[in-house]
Design a protein around this nucleic acid. Structure first.
Lengths: 204, 204
DNA sequence: CGACGGATCCATCGAAGGATCGATCTTCTG
DNA sequence: CAGAAGATCGATCCTTCGATGGATCCGTCG
Protein backbone atom coordinates (compact mmCIF):
# COMPACT_ATOMS: atom_id res chain seq x y z
CA UNK A 1 0.00 0.00 0.00
CA UNK A 2 1.40 3.35 -1.00
CA UNK A 3 2.17 6.17 1.38
CA UNK A 4 -0.80 8.51 1.98
CA UNK A 5 -0.03 12.23 2.05
CA UNK A 6 -1.61 15.53 3.03
CA UNK A 7 -0.30 18.74 1.44
CA UNK A 8 -0.54 22.00 3.38
CA UNK A 9 0.34 25.26 1.65
CA UNK A 10 -1.49 28.53 1.18
CA UNK A 11 -0.37 28.87 -2.44
CA UNK A 12 -2.45 26.91 -4.95
CA UNK A 13 0.48 26.77 -7.35
CA UNK A 14 2.78 25.20 -4.80
CA UNK A 15 0.11 22.67 -3.86
CA UNK A 16 -0.30 21.77 -7.52
CA UNK A 17 3.46 21.45 -7.91
CA UNK A 18 3.84 19.22 -4.89
CA UNK A 19 0.91 17.06 -5.93
CA UNK A 20 2.33 16.73 -9.43
CA UNK A 21 5.78 15.80 -8.19
CA UNK A 22 4.51 13.44 -5.54
CA UNK A 23 1.92 11.58 -7.57
CA UNK A 24 4.42 11.03 -10.35
CA UNK A 25 6.43 9.03 -7.82
CA UNK A 26 3.53 6.79 -6.99
CA UNK A 27 2.53 8.30 -3.65
CA UNK A 28 -1.09 8.91 -2.78
CA UNK A 29 -2.11 12.53 -2.06
CA UNK A 30 -5.32 12.13 -0.07
CA UNK A 31 -6.01 15.85 0.35
CA UNK A 32 -4.72 19.42 0.12
CA UNK A 33 -5.19 22.12 2.73
CA UNK A 34 -4.74 25.87 2.26
CA UNK A 35 -4.48 26.62 5.99
CA UNK A 36 -3.30 25.05 9.21
CA UNK A 37 -6.82 24.83 10.58
CA UNK A 38 -8.01 23.01 7.48
CA UNK A 39 -5.04 20.66 7.69
CA UNK A 40 -5.80 19.66 11.27
CA UNK A 41 -9.43 18.97 10.42
CA UNK A 42 -8.56 16.91 7.35
CA UNK A 43 -5.87 14.94 9.15
CA UNK A 44 -8.21 13.89 11.93
CA UNK A 45 -10.53 12.40 9.31
CA UNK A 46 -8.11 10.97 6.81
CA UNK A 47 -5.15 9.99 8.99
CA UNK A 48 -2.43 10.48 6.37
CA UNK A 49 0.96 8.87 6.88
CA UNK A 50 2.90 12.02 6.06
CA UNK A 51 2.01 15.72 6.06
CA UNK A 52 3.98 18.19 3.96
CA UNK A 53 3.45 21.54 5.66
CA UNK A 54 4.63 25.01 4.67
CA UNK A 55 6.13 27.04 7.50
CA UNK A 56 4.32 30.25 6.53
CA UNK A 57 0.63 29.85 5.97
CA UNK A 58 -0.70 33.35 5.54
CA UNK A 59 -3.52 34.44 7.82
CA UNK A 60 -4.20 31.68 10.35
CA UNK A 61 -1.93 29.52 12.47
CA UNK A 62 1.58 28.95 11.15
CA UNK A 63 3.41 25.73 10.36
CA UNK A 64 4.79 25.41 13.87
CA UNK A 65 1.38 25.51 15.52
CA UNK A 66 -0.05 23.24 12.84
CA UNK A 67 2.70 20.73 13.53
CA UNK A 68 2.01 20.84 17.24
CA UNK A 69 -1.72 20.27 16.67
CA UNK A 70 -1.14 17.42 14.23
CA UNK A 71 1.34 15.67 16.51
CA UNK A 72 -0.87 15.90 19.58
CA UNK A 73 -3.71 14.04 17.89
CA UNK A 74 -4.11 10.25 18.05
CA UNK A 75 -2.26 8.36 15.29
CA UNK A 76 -0.19 11.42 14.47
CA UNK A 77 1.30 11.73 10.96
CA UNK A 78 4.94 12.39 10.28
CA UNK A 79 5.24 16.10 9.54
CA UNK A 80 7.77 17.43 7.06
CA UNK A 81 8.18 21.20 7.15
CA UNK A 82 8.64 23.07 3.90
CA UNK A 83 10.23 26.48 3.88
CA UNK A 84 11.19 28.96 1.21
CA UNK A 85 13.99 30.63 3.07
CA UNK A 86 16.01 29.47 6.00
CA UNK A 87 14.15 30.92 8.95
CA UNK A 88 16.30 29.38 11.60
CA UNK A 89 14.35 29.97 14.77
CA UNK A 90 11.08 28.90 13.20
CA UNK A 91 12.53 25.64 11.93
CA UNK A 92 13.91 24.80 15.33
CA UNK A 93 10.54 25.51 16.88
CA UNK A 94 8.85 23.24 14.35
CA UNK A 95 11.24 20.41 15.22
CA UNK A 96 10.53 20.95 18.89
CA UNK A 97 6.83 20.73 18.07
CA UNK A 98 7.39 17.27 16.68
CA UNK A 99 8.25 17.71 13.01
CA UNK A 100 10.23 14.88 11.45
CA UNK A 101 12.41 17.38 9.60
CA UNK A 102 12.37 20.15 7.10
CA UNK A 103 13.06 20.78 3.45
CA UNK A 104 13.87 23.93 1.53
CA UNK A 105 11.37 24.47 -1.23
CA UNK A 106 14.05 24.87 -3.84
CA UNK A 107 15.37 21.33 -3.50
CA UNK A 108 15.22 18.86 -6.37
CA UNK A 109 12.15 16.71 -6.65
CA UNK A 110 14.07 13.51 -5.89
CA UNK A 111 14.97 14.87 -2.48
CA UNK A 112 11.32 15.36 -1.69
CA UNK A 113 10.49 11.81 -2.67
CA UNK A 114 13.26 10.44 -0.50
CA UNK A 115 12.17 12.61 2.40
CA UNK A 116 8.65 11.25 2.18
CA UNK A 117 9.70 7.62 2.30
CA UNK A 118 12.14 8.34 5.10
CA UNK A 119 9.55 10.19 7.16
CA UNK A 120 6.93 7.50 6.60
CA UNK A 121 9.43 4.98 7.92
CA UNK A 122 9.81 7.04 11.07
CA UNK A 123 13.19 8.53 10.23
CA UNK A 124 14.22 12.14 10.55
CA UNK A 125 14.52 14.29 7.45
CA UNK A 126 16.94 17.04 6.68
CA UNK A 127 17.65 19.03 3.59
CA UNK A 128 21.06 19.02 1.98
CA UNK A 129 21.68 22.50 3.36
CA UNK A 130 21.45 22.09 7.10
CA UNK A 131 24.37 24.30 8.04
CA UNK A 132 21.94 27.02 9.03
CA UNK A 133 20.08 24.66 11.28
CA UNK A 134 23.25 23.63 13.03
CA UNK A 135 24.10 27.28 13.52
CA UNK A 136 20.67 27.92 14.96
CA UNK A 137 20.99 25.02 17.38
CA UNK A 138 24.49 25.98 18.35
CA UNK A 139 23.66 29.64 18.87
CA UNK A 140 22.62 30.46 22.43
CA UNK A 141 18.87 30.21 22.45
CA UNK A 142 17.06 33.54 22.60
CA UNK A 143 13.88 33.59 24.62
CA UNK A 144 12.07 36.91 24.39
CA UNK A 145 9.25 37.92 26.70
CA UNK A 146 5.94 38.85 25.07
CA UNK A 147 6.56 42.47 25.90
CA UNK A 148 10.01 42.41 24.41
CA UNK A 149 8.65 40.83 21.25
CA UNK A 150 6.08 43.60 20.93
CA UNK A 151 8.78 46.20 21.26
CA UNK A 152 11.01 44.33 18.84
CA UNK A 153 8.36 44.31 16.17
CA UNK A 154 7.89 48.05 16.47
CA UNK A 155 11.63 48.63 16.42
CA UNK A 156 11.76 46.67 13.19
CA UNK A 157 9.04 48.89 11.76
CA UNK A 158 11.26 51.86 12.47
CA UNK A 159 9.32 53.36 15.35
CA UNK A 160 11.15 55.62 17.81
CA UNK A 161 11.14 54.88 21.53
CA UNK A 162 8.66 57.67 22.04
CA UNK A 163 6.30 56.27 19.43
CA UNK A 164 6.55 52.79 20.88
CA UNK A 165 5.85 54.18 24.33
CA UNK A 166 2.71 55.91 23.05
CA UNK A 167 1.53 52.78 21.26
CA UNK A 168 2.02 50.54 24.29
CA UNK A 169 0.87 53.10 26.88
CA UNK A 170 4.11 52.98 28.85
CA UNK A 171 6.88 55.46 29.58
CA UNK A 172 9.65 56.04 27.09
CA UNK A 173 12.11 54.95 29.76
CA UNK A 174 10.43 51.56 29.92
CA UNK A 175 10.72 51.11 26.22
CA UNK A 176 14.41 51.85 26.51
CA UNK A 177 14.79 49.09 29.07
CA UNK A 178 13.11 46.58 26.81
CA UNK A 179 15.30 47.70 23.95
CA UNK A 180 18.41 47.28 26.07
CA UNK A 181 17.33 43.76 26.98
CA UNK A 182 16.74 43.03 23.31
CA UNK A 183 20.20 44.26 22.40
CA UNK A 184 21.73 42.07 25.08
CA UNK A 185 19.80 38.96 24.12
CA UNK A 186 20.48 39.42 20.43
CA UNK A 187 24.08 40.38 21.00
CA UNK A 188 23.97 43.47 18.81
CA UNK A 189 25.15 47.05 19.38
CA UNK A 190 22.18 49.05 18.14
CA UNK A 191 18.48 49.04 17.39
CA UNK A 192 18.75 48.80 13.64
CA UNK A 193 21.15 45.91 14.04
CA UNK A 194 18.61 44.32 16.37
CA UNK A 195 15.97 44.48 13.67
CA UNK A 196 18.31 42.94 11.12
CA UNK A 197 19.39 40.19 13.50
CA UNK A 198 15.84 39.39 14.53
CA UNK A 199 14.80 38.98 10.92
CA UNK A 200 17.84 36.85 10.25
CA UNK A 201 16.88 34.55 13.11
CA UNK A 202 13.26 34.43 12.05
CA UNK A 203 12.02 35.91 15.31
CA UNK A 204 9.66 38.29 13.59
CA UNK B 1 -3.10 26.49 -32.26
CA UNK B 2 -2.71 26.70 -28.55
CA UNK B 3 -0.70 29.33 -26.72
CA UNK B 4 2.96 28.36 -26.27
CA UNK B 5 4.50 29.14 -22.87
CA UNK B 6 7.87 29.34 -21.17
CA UNK B 7 8.02 28.99 -17.38
CA UNK B 8 10.82 30.72 -15.46
CA UNK B 9 11.25 30.03 -11.75
CA UNK B 10 14.17 28.88 -9.64
CA UNK B 11 12.02 26.50 -7.58
CA UNK B 12 11.35 23.12 -9.19
CA UNK B 13 8.15 22.74 -7.20
CA UNK B 14 6.72 26.01 -8.45
CA UNK B 15 7.64 25.11 -12.02
CA UNK B 16 5.88 21.77 -11.64
CA UNK B 17 2.84 23.51 -10.17
CA UNK B 18 2.63 26.04 -12.94
CA UNK B 19 3.09 23.39 -15.60
CA UNK B 20 0.42 21.23 -14.03
CA UNK B 21 -2.06 24.09 -13.76
CA UNK B 22 -1.32 25.42 -17.23
CA UNK B 23 -1.35 22.16 -19.13
CA UNK B 24 -4.64 21.19 -17.53
CA UNK B 25 -6.12 24.25 -19.24
CA UNK B 26 -4.90 23.18 -22.65
CA UNK B 27 -1.93 25.51 -22.99
CA UNK B 28 1.37 24.29 -24.34
CA UNK B 29 4.40 24.59 -22.04
CA UNK B 30 7.33 24.45 -24.44
CA UNK B 31 10.05 24.72 -21.79
CA UNK B 32 11.00 25.51 -18.21
CA UNK B 33 13.94 27.64 -17.10
CA UNK B 34 15.49 27.79 -13.63
CA UNK B 35 17.29 31.08 -14.23
CA UNK B 36 16.95 34.28 -16.19
CA UNK B 37 19.94 33.46 -18.35
CA UNK B 38 18.47 30.09 -19.26
CA UNK B 39 15.12 31.73 -20.03
CA UNK B 40 16.63 34.21 -22.46
CA UNK B 41 18.51 31.43 -24.28
CA UNK B 42 15.44 29.21 -24.53
CA UNK B 43 13.19 32.03 -25.67
CA UNK B 44 15.49 32.97 -28.53
CA UNK B 45 15.22 29.40 -29.81
CA UNK B 46 11.62 28.54 -29.08
CA UNK B 47 9.88 31.91 -29.41
CA UNK B 48 7.09 31.27 -26.91
CA UNK B 49 3.97 33.44 -26.98
CA UNK B 50 3.98 34.07 -23.24
CA UNK B 51 6.66 33.87 -20.55
CA UNK B 52 5.72 33.39 -16.91
CA UNK B 53 8.66 34.77 -14.96
CA UNK B 54 9.32 34.89 -11.23
CA UNK B 55 10.56 38.22 -9.92
CA UNK B 56 13.20 36.69 -7.67
CA UNK B 57 15.39 34.14 -9.38
CA UNK B 58 18.11 33.30 -6.89
CA UNK B 59 21.68 33.73 -7.99
CA UNK B 60 21.72 35.24 -11.47
CA UNK B 61 19.80 38.10 -13.07
CA UNK B 62 16.41 38.88 -11.58
CA UNK B 63 12.99 39.00 -13.20
CA UNK B 64 13.32 42.66 -14.14
CA UNK B 65 16.52 42.14 -16.08
CA UNK B 66 15.15 38.95 -17.62
CA UNK B 67 12.09 40.84 -18.79
CA UNK B 68 14.23 43.55 -20.33
CA UNK B 69 16.35 40.98 -22.16
CA UNK B 70 13.33 39.05 -23.41
CA UNK B 71 11.56 42.16 -24.64
CA UNK B 72 14.57 43.53 -26.47
CA UNK B 73 14.88 40.41 -28.62
CA UNK B 74 13.14 40.02 -31.99
CA UNK B 75 9.60 38.60 -31.81
CA UNK B 76 9.44 39.32 -28.05
CA UNK B 77 7.06 37.24 -25.94
CA UNK B 78 4.51 38.73 -23.59
CA UNK B 79 6.03 38.56 -20.12
CA UNK B 80 3.89 38.00 -17.03
CA UNK B 81 5.72 38.61 -13.78
CA UNK B 82 5.05 36.30 -10.85
CA UNK B 83 5.77 37.44 -7.33
CA UNK B 84 5.32 35.93 -3.91
CA UNK B 85 5.02 39.16 -2.00
CA UNK B 86 4.18 42.62 -3.18
CA UNK B 87 7.55 44.16 -3.84
CA UNK B 88 6.28 47.41 -5.21
CA UNK B 89 9.35 49.01 -6.66
CA UNK B 90 10.44 45.82 -8.35
CA UNK B 91 7.07 45.31 -9.98
CA UNK B 92 7.04 48.84 -11.31
CA UNK B 93 10.51 48.32 -12.72
CA UNK B 94 9.41 45.10 -14.40
CA UNK B 95 6.50 46.91 -16.04
CA UNK B 96 8.86 49.62 -17.22
CA UNK B 97 11.06 46.89 -18.68
CA UNK B 98 8.14 45.76 -20.81
CA UNK B 99 6.22 43.22 -18.76
CA UNK B 100 2.58 42.79 -19.71
CA UNK B 101 1.59 42.65 -16.06
CA UNK B 102 2.11 40.77 -12.85
CA UNK B 103 0.41 38.17 -10.72
CA UNK B 104 0.75 37.27 -7.07
CA UNK B 105 1.68 33.64 -6.67
CA UNK B 106 -1.13 32.96 -4.25
CA UNK B 107 -3.89 33.69 -6.78
CA UNK B 108 -6.35 31.04 -7.85
CA UNK B 109 -5.46 28.94 -10.84
CA UNK B 110 -8.29 30.38 -12.96
CA UNK B 111 -6.75 33.82 -12.67
CA UNK B 112 -3.51 32.51 -14.10
CA UNK B 113 -5.32 30.97 -17.05
CA UNK B 114 -7.13 34.20 -17.80
CA UNK B 115 -3.91 36.17 -17.47
CA UNK B 116 -2.22 33.95 -20.05
CA UNK B 117 -4.94 34.36 -22.66
CA UNK B 118 -5.09 38.09 -22.03
CA UNK B 119 -1.34 38.49 -22.32
CA UNK B 120 -1.18 36.38 -25.48
CA UNK B 121 -3.81 38.67 -26.98
CA UNK B 122 -1.60 41.65 -26.24
CA UNK B 123 -3.56 42.93 -23.26
CA UNK B 124 -2.17 44.05 -19.93
CA UNK B 125 -2.52 41.79 -16.92
CA UNK B 126 -3.08 42.67 -13.33
CA UNK B 127 -3.78 40.63 -10.26
CA UNK B 128 -6.93 41.17 -8.22
CA UNK B 129 -4.87 42.90 -5.58
CA UNK B 130 -3.38 45.88 -7.37
CA UNK B 131 -3.88 48.44 -4.62
CA UNK B 132 -0.22 48.18 -3.77
CA UNK B 133 0.77 48.84 -7.34
CA UNK B 134 -1.41 51.92 -7.51
CA UNK B 135 0.17 53.14 -4.30
CA UNK B 136 3.62 52.55 -5.73
CA UNK B 137 2.79 54.45 -8.89
CA UNK B 138 1.13 57.25 -7.00
CA UNK B 139 3.96 57.61 -4.50
CA UNK B 140 6.63 60.08 -5.57
CA UNK B 141 9.21 57.99 -7.33
CA UNK B 142 12.34 57.36 -5.30
CA UNK B 143 15.52 57.28 -7.30
CA UNK B 144 18.52 56.42 -5.17
CA UNK B 145 22.07 56.92 -6.35
CA UNK B 146 24.35 53.86 -6.35
CA UNK B 147 26.21 55.26 -3.37
CA UNK B 148 23.04 55.90 -1.45
CA UNK B 149 21.92 52.35 -2.15
CA UNK B 150 25.16 51.00 -0.76
CA UNK B 151 24.74 53.04 2.39
CA UNK B 152 21.09 52.02 2.64
CA UNK B 153 21.96 48.34 2.52
CA UNK B 154 24.43 48.76 5.35
CA UNK B 155 21.95 50.78 7.36
CA UNK B 156 19.51 47.91 6.93
CA UNK B 157 22.13 45.51 8.23
CA UNK B 158 22.34 47.59 11.37
CA UNK B 159 25.73 49.20 10.82
CA UNK B 160 26.54 52.49 12.56
CA UNK B 161 27.66 55.53 10.59
CA UNK B 162 31.20 54.94 11.74
CA UNK B 163 31.15 51.32 10.61
CA UNK B 164 29.72 52.25 7.22
CA UNK B 165 32.41 54.88 6.83
CA UNK B 166 35.10 52.31 7.52
CA UNK B 167 33.58 49.80 5.11
CA UNK B 168 33.28 52.30 2.27
CA UNK B 169 36.57 54.10 2.99
CA UNK B 170 34.93 57.51 3.39
CA UNK B 171 34.50 59.94 6.28
CA UNK B 172 31.69 59.56 8.78
CA UNK B 173 30.48 63.01 7.72
CA UNK B 174 29.94 61.72 4.22
CA UNK B 175 27.94 58.80 5.47
CA UNK B 176 25.77 61.20 7.42
CA UNK B 177 25.10 63.18 4.27
CA UNK B 178 24.02 60.08 2.40
CA UNK B 179 21.83 59.02 5.30
CA UNK B 180 20.20 62.45 5.39
CA UNK B 181 19.44 62.18 1.68
CA UNK B 182 18.00 58.72 2.21
CA UNK B 183 15.74 59.94 4.99
CA UNK B 184 14.52 62.78 2.80
CA UNK B 185 13.89 60.60 -0.23
CA UNK B 186 12.13 57.92 1.78
CA UNK B 187 10.20 60.42 3.85
CA UNK B 188 11.07 58.84 7.17
CA UNK B 189 12.35 60.30 10.45
CA UNK B 190 15.11 57.84 11.38
CA UNK B 191 17.51 55.23 10.14
CA UNK B 192 15.64 52.19 11.35
CA UNK B 193 12.49 53.55 9.77
CA UNK B 194 14.47 53.97 6.57
CA UNK B 195 15.40 50.31 6.61
CA UNK B 196 11.80 49.28 7.17
CA UNK B 197 10.52 51.60 4.47
CA UNK B 198 13.14 50.46 1.98
CA UNK B 199 12.19 46.85 2.52
CA UNK B 200 8.53 47.72 2.22
CA UNK B 201 9.16 49.35 -1.12
CA UNK B 202 11.35 46.50 -2.32
CA UNK B 203 14.38 48.72 -2.76
CA UNK B 204 16.70 46.24 -1.10
C1' DC C 1 6.24 31.68 54.42
C1' DG C 2 10.20 33.88 52.54
C1' DA C 3 13.59 33.84 49.06
C1' DC C 4 14.21 34.01 44.34
C1' DG C 5 13.90 35.10 39.49
C1' DG C 6 11.46 37.11 35.84
C1' DA C 7 8.80 40.75 33.99
C1' DT C 8 7.55 45.29 34.07
C1' DC C 9 8.32 49.87 35.25
C1' DC C 10 11.00 54.46 35.91
C1' DA C 11 15.07 58.29 36.19
C1' DT C 12 19.56 60.05 34.89
C1' DC C 13 23.54 60.95 31.76
C1' DG C 14 27.18 60.41 28.28
C1' DA C 15 27.36 58.95 23.41
C1' DA C 16 25.58 58.49 18.97
C1' DG C 17 22.53 59.98 15.55
C1' DG C 18 20.19 63.66 12.85
C1' DA C 19 19.42 68.70 11.24
C1' DT C 20 21.52 72.59 9.22
C1' DC C 21 24.73 75.26 7.58
C1' DG C 22 28.73 75.38 4.58
C1' DA C 23 32.37 73.87 0.91
C1' DT C 24 35.44 71.53 -3.07
C1' DC C 25 35.92 68.22 -6.86
C1' DT C 26 34.52 65.24 -10.66
C1' DT C 27 31.55 63.83 -14.35
C1' DC C 28 28.14 64.21 -17.48
C1' DT C 29 25.19 66.77 -20.45
C1' DG C 30 22.93 70.42 -23.12
C1' DC D 1 31.71 76.07 -21.87
C1' DA D 2 27.99 76.49 -18.32
C1' DG D 3 25.21 74.05 -15.41
C1' DA D 4 23.46 70.06 -13.01
C1' DA D 5 24.20 66.20 -10.23
C1' DG D 6 26.82 63.16 -7.46
C1' DA D 7 30.42 62.26 -4.05
C1' DT D 8 33.29 63.99 -0.72
C1' DC D 9 34.34 66.49 3.78
C1' DG D 10 33.84 69.92 8.01
C1' DA D 11 31.41 72.46 11.97
C1' DT D 12 27.60 73.38 14.73
C1' DC D 13 23.52 72.35 17.49
C1' DC D 14 19.88 69.62 19.22
C1' DT D 15 17.43 65.17 19.77
C1' DT D 16 17.39 60.51 20.44
C1' DC D 17 19.46 56.52 21.84
C1' DG D 18 21.78 53.30 24.85
C1' DA D 19 24.01 52.23 29.39
C1' DT D 20 23.45 52.08 34.24
C1' DG D 21 21.05 51.67 38.40
C1' DG D 22 17.11 50.94 41.05
C1' DA D 23 12.10 50.12 41.91
C1' DT D 24 7.67 47.23 42.11
C1' DC D 25 4.76 43.29 41.16
C1' DC D 26 4.01 38.36 40.81
C1' DG D 27 4.44 33.45 40.43
C1' DT D 28 7.38 29.45 41.81
C1' DC D 29 9.71 26.58 44.69
C1' DG D 30 12.20 24.89 48.53
Amino acid sequence: MSIRLLIVDDHPIVRAGLRSVIERRGFDVVAEAASGEEAVALASDLHPDVVLCDLRLGEGIDGVETTAALRSAPRPPAVIILTTFDHDAQIVRALEAGAAGYLLKDVATEVIAKAITDAAAGALVFGPDDRRLVEALRAPRVELTPRELEVLRRVDEGASNREIAAQLFIAEATVKTHVVHLLEKLGVPGRSAAAAEARRRGLI
